[in-house]
Amino acid sequence: MRAAPNAGNVCQEKAAHISKLLQQLYPEARCSLHYQNVFQLLVATMLSAQCTDARVNTVAPLFFQQFPTPHAVAQASIEALEACIQPIGLFRVKARNLKNACRILVADYSGDVPRTLKDLLRLPGVGRKTAHVILGNAFGVPALPVDTHAARVSQRLGLTHHRDPNKIEKDLCALYPPESWVRLSHQLIQHGRQVCRSHRPLCTSCALNNYCEAYLQGRFS
């Protein structure tokens, strides 16, 4: 079946309206993890998997006091790392990943965090989302991390009909220019946390409801 005339343009127009509204709503949206350098951002992002940023922000400063560099983490015992991050979910797996990732940083990158997606994905515990957080926020590389909030908001708005984060990322990147990707990711995340929540979303008061596929189809009210 042939696509309707200008279907792509309509989608682009809708995407542009959504972007404009998000910019009005969240002009200062940014990464909510606290960090002072790229190594700290890497660790905090790895710790944030299946954990709230607020919890990570309470634990990470204590971690960095004990283990301020990749060399310190690489040389630490697994038991010491686990004890430091125990309040965070999956702390045993994360401690092992942190140690192994820092071993690679020390051995192959002189203790520096690499600047390419390919190299970041070599690090244990670093997936595509984490790598894009590093690239976009630490190095200014166009990247669009898709977490659970960004995925949920994008799906409900109808910007994507995929569930796989990599496919959602591809759809969003096709709709928006690279220079907007980092900002857009933060804005989608903030909207997902504050308004388009997983349970009991605030649809009737949402500034985007005129463009929301889920709301217009009556899936939420």
Rank of each mutant, 00 (worst) to 15 (best):
R2H: 10
A4L: 14
N6Q: 07
K14W: 04
H17Y: 10
H17G: 03
Q23P: 00
L25G: 02
P27W: 10
E28Q: 15
S32G: 11
Y35D: 02
Y35M: 07
L41W: 02
L41P: 06
L41N: 01
L42M: 14
V43F: 05
T45P: 06
S48Y: 05
A49W: 00
Q50G: 08
T52W: 08
D53S: 11
N57K: 05
T58I: 09
P61T: 07
F63K: 00
P68D: 08
V73L: 09
A74R: 07
A74K: 02
A76R: 00
S77W: 02
I88R: 00
G89H: 03
L90F: 15
F91Q: 01
R92H: 11
K99C: 11
V106K: 00
D108Y: 03
Y109M: 07
V113L: 03
P114A: 11
R115D: 08
T116D: 06
L117C: 05
D119Q: 15
L120A: 11
R122K: 15
L123F: 04
V126P: 03
V126L: 10
T130R: 03
A131Q: 06
H132A: 08
I134P: 02
N137W: 03
A138R: 02
A138P: 05
F139A: 07
P142I: 12
P142F: 08
L144N: 03
V146R: 02
D147P: 10
S154W: 07
H161W: 05
K167H: 09
K170D: 11
D171M: 13
C173D: 00
C173I: 12
A174Y: 00
E179K: 10
S180W: 06
V182E: 06
H186R: 06
Q187E: 13
L188F: 13
L188W: 09
L188Q: 08
H199W: 04
R200G: 07
R200F: 13
T204M: 11
C206I: 14
A207D: 06
N209D: 09
N210F: 09
E213V: 12
A214T: 08
Y215L: 13
Q217G: 12
F220I: 12
